[in-house]
Design a protein around this nucleic acid. Sequence first.
DNA 1: TTGTGTTTGTTGCAAATGCAACAGAAATTT
DNA 2: AAATTTCTGTTGCATTTGCAACAAACACAA
Lengths: 205, 205
Amino acid sequence: MDFSDLMEDISHSCTKMQKRFFSKGSIITTYMEKRRQICILLSGKADLIRYDLNGNKDIIDRFSPHDIFGEAFYPVNTNNELFVLATEDCEVFVFLYDAIQTKCKANCKFHSIFISHLLELILNKVVHQNTRIEILSKRTIREKLLSYFSILSNKSFSKSITIPFSLTTLADYLSVDRSAMMREIKSLIDDGFILKNGNKIKLLY
Amino acid sequence: MDFSDLMEDISHSCTKMQKRFFSKGSIITTYMEKRRQICILLSGKADLIRYDLNGNKDIIDRFSPHDIFGEAFYPVNTNNELFVLATEDCEVFVFLYDAIQTKCKANCKFHSIFISHLLELILNKVVHQNTRIEILSKRTIREKLLSYFSILSNKSFSKSITIPFSLTTLADYLSVDRSAMMREIKSLIDDGFILKNGNKIKLLY
DNA sequence: TTGTGTTTGTTGCAAATGCAACAGAAATTT
DNA sequence: AAATTTCTGTTGCATTTGCAACAAACACAA
């Protein structure tokens, strides 16, 4: 069964698991006192945002379809002014973690297949997080860039890669100063490690 | 039902999920071509290790009881000389991801309860990873330290915290140079942010 | 006890980084 | 088409960081 179909069916058979719509600019959820909430993004895009002490907007994470998020994945902290903002119109599947423990109906046929899909999605999330941690663990911007590039390259089986978002966003993802990153990219070009044309990078090593 | 008991029972009823023993110094698993393998550490301690290009030992992750690991959580990369080393005698529950999809017996009563435990463990892993990412995203050593300290402080509801491992290990966890971290700790003391006595830190803010 | 290895603490120095600021290009909105 | 916002590219400068090296404290095993 296709994933979207499954979600569709479940929304109809389970009262506790609902597909909901959010228009661009609206807040999908706030991370406060809903410790067991889990959301699956079915379509659209959304950002996990925090305003830090200085009032700066901090994009903690960006979600696209099939991504899973919600307070259930976040540690209980004081600094919990976290919320998820729809940056495009979104369809979101929302439920409480406990809802999957108690079978929805006497014999909901979707239940077990849904759980295995859920496991798969979470597993996927862990893999992405490990990738991110691997990159962030690198000590220099150069190492972070090379590490990121080679991951992209491995994924696409090619030495020519396309950065899937703006350089500004890339700097956020690598968690480094943008101008310092630009400087380092230039230096990678000068040192003959890469070629660059817009968002396209060619690895020369 | 208690978690250890559950694991015990499952090892007896499922042939595909086995409890295995590894003595200190032995290799629990290598991350190579076992893309669906999942392990749950029941007792002991283990490190996820890689030797980098220069032959330096890199401790990617450290596991203690109830931690879950295995190649299933790691991206497919070329640099896959990853392996898990038992740093103490270990009991490990080992299985393939697929084993949980196919019911072990006609009516294995442990199956669904096991899956919900598994979900809980993975959820826990994601929470820890989010914490790690949050810390690693900070740009300076000072911010990383403060962030780490305040997380510990929130967890224990106290301004007095104890770093649960050596400062050398802490530097690894924060992914910064140890001597630079020591310097920064000293500077935090000088600036009146913290007091320090061995592994005990008192937050003054 | 002696020796061996690990952890802590410290410093100088060179290199990397963040920060601030600015101008032009590109994309988006009005 | 004009206006506005976002993104790219660049630079100088002060600060932070990694690196190398070393000594003292500590832990552990022979």
